[in-house]
Amino acid sequence: MITEIAPAPERTAAEPARPGRRRRAWDEVPRWQIYLPLTVYLLFTLIPFYWILLFALRPAGSTSLVPWPMTFEHFEKVWTERSFGTYFANSVYVGLATLVLTTVVALAGGYALARFDFRLKRGFMLALLCSQFVPGALLLVPLFQIFAELRMINSLGSVIIAETVFQLPLSMILISGFIRNVPYSLEEAAWVDGCNRLTAFRIVVLPLLRPGLIAVGSFAFVHAWNHFLFALMFLSDQGKQTIPVGLNTLMSADSVDLGALAAGGIIAAVPVVIVFAFIQKWLITGFSAGAVKG
C-alpha cells in the first residue's frame, strides 16, 4: 500500500535515520478510512443521477428499478410536444452569447486592471467586489422596468445582458489575475519588435491566457445555461423560453409527467456535463490561481 505513495524517494531513504518515529502518518491513512466514506458519499451523489436516468429510460408506469425494456419515448415527447427542441436552441443561444460577451468585456476590463495605473482603479475594484453582494433576484423588478423601457422584454437579448452583467465582476477579477501572471516584459519585447499594443496582446498574451479564458467562458456558459429567474421573468412568449423555464413548467403541472420531466432533465444536463468534463482539470488550478488567492 505504501508503495503507491510517490513523492521524493530520497526522503524515504532518509527515513531510517529517525528511528522510533511513525513513518509518514499523514500518508498512512488506512484504506478503509478512505473507501468507506467515499463509497457512502458516492451513493448519495449517484443515486439521484441514476434515478433520473431510470425515469427517463423506462416506459411510463413501470416500477422496475432497472431501465429495461429501454425506451426513448419520453425524449421524443419532451423534445417535440413540450418544445424542448426550441428551448434547447434558445438556451444554447443565450449561453453562447453570454460566454462571448462576458469574455470579451471582461478581457478588456481585466487588461486595464492588470496593466495600467489609473485614478479610478481602486474605486472600480471596490465596485466589482461590492457587486458580489448584490442579488440579481432582488433586482428583478427594476431590471424588468429597464428592459421594458428598452423594449427588450420577450427578447433573448434581455436575458443575455442580465446574465452577462452578473457574471462580469468575478470574470474580470479572475482574468486580470491571469494577465498579471504573464510577464509584462514579454509584451514589451513584442513592442520593440514593432508590434502595436493590440498585436502584441494578440500574439503574445492571448495564447497564454487560453486556459484561464476557457475556465471563465465555461463558467459564464454554465451559469447562463442554468439560470432560471431572469428567463422566467423577462420571457413570457413560450417560443422564447429556455430549458430551466421548461423544466419548471413540467414540474408545476397539476399532474407531473415524471418520464417527460426526467427526459427534460437529462437534456438540460448534457451540455453542462460536457463542459464540466472539459474544464475539470482547470477547475482546481484555475481556482487556486485566481479566485481565492486574489
Partner: peptide, 25 residues
C-alpha cells in the same frame, strides 16, 4: 472518485429540483 464526487457541482437549481421531485415523489 474526484470527478464523480464533484459532478453535481454544475447542476442547476431547477434540475436539482427536478431530480429530487422524482426521488421524493
Amino acid at each position: 472518485g474526484r470527478a464523480l464526487v464533484f459532478s453535481p457541482w454544475a447542476v442547476s437549481g431547477v434540475l436539482t429540483s427536478a431530480i429530487w421531485v422524482l426521488l421524493y415523489n
